Computed example of a mutant assay.
Amino acid sequence: MTKKELEAKVEEIRKYKTMIEEASNIEKALEAEVISYMNENNLTEELTDTAKITYKSQTRATLDKKRLEEDLGSLEEYTKTTTYSVLRIK
């Protein structure tokens, strides 16, 4: 691949990233409308001809790593490290 071809690929990637961002913004706006409908009608679940929609609270428990390290010291022996490659284009 030549540098010119590489540049064309990068431009195409940028174009698709822009399209993804625009689609994501549209998706978020549509989701906000659905959430508004669910809240206005005091619903946690709704069925349509093609979808089952739920909007419910959810709980997630996490560990406070800083506090654990303060209380127990180093957590190095419990740390799992994963290595992977990342492509970044600026």
Rank of each mutant, 00 (worst) to 15 (best):
T2R: 01
K3F: 15
K4R: 08
K4L: 13
E5H: 07
L6D: 04
A8P: 00
A8V: 06
A8E: 10
K9R: 09
V10A: 06
V10G: 02
E11G: 02
E11V: 05
E11W: 02
E11C: 03
E12T: 05
I13W: 09
I13G: 00
I13T: 03
R14H: 08
Y16Q: 06
M19C: 01
M19S: 03
E21S: 14
E21R: 14
A23E: 12
I26S: 06
E27F: 13
K28R: 10
A29N: 05
A29P: 00
A29I: 06
L30F: 12
L30G: 02
L30E: 11
L30P: 00
E31G: 01
A32H: 04
A32N: 09
A32F: 06
A32G: 05
E33V: 10
V34C: 02
I35C: 03
I35A: 09
I35T: 08
Y37L: 14
Y37Q: 05
M38R: 02
M38D: 01
M38V: 03
N39M: 13
N39S: 12
N39Q: 15
N39F: 12
E40N: 12
E40H: 06
N41Y: 08
N41F: 11
N41W: 08
N42T: 14
L43M: 12
E45I: 02
E45W: 02
L47V: 07
T48R: 01
D49T: 12
D49E: 14
T50D: 09
T50A: 07
T50P: 01
A51K: 05
K52T: 07
K52N: 07
K52H: 13
I53G: 00
I53M: 05
T54F: 05
Y55E: 02
K56Q: 10
S57W: 08
Q58S: 15
T59Q: 07
T59G: 00
R60D: 12
A61R: 07
A61N: 11
T62G: 06
L63K: 04
D64A: 07
D64L: 11
D64M: 10
K65C: 08
K66S: 11
R67K: 15
E69L: 12
D71W: 12
L72M: 14
L72K: 06
L72R: 05
L72H: 05
L72W: 11
G73C: 03
G73R: 02
G73K: 02
S74A: 15
S74H: 11
S74F: 15
L75D: 01
E76Y: 12
E76N: 11
E77H: 01
Y78F: 15
T79P: 00
T79Y: 09
K80D: 13
T81Q: 03
T81R: 06
T81D: 05
T82I: 15
T82D: 07
T83V: 15
T83W: 04
T83H: 09
Y84P: 00
Y84E: 08
S85W: 10
S85G: 04
S85Y: 11
V86A: 04
L87I: 10
I89A: 01
I89P: 01
K90R: 13
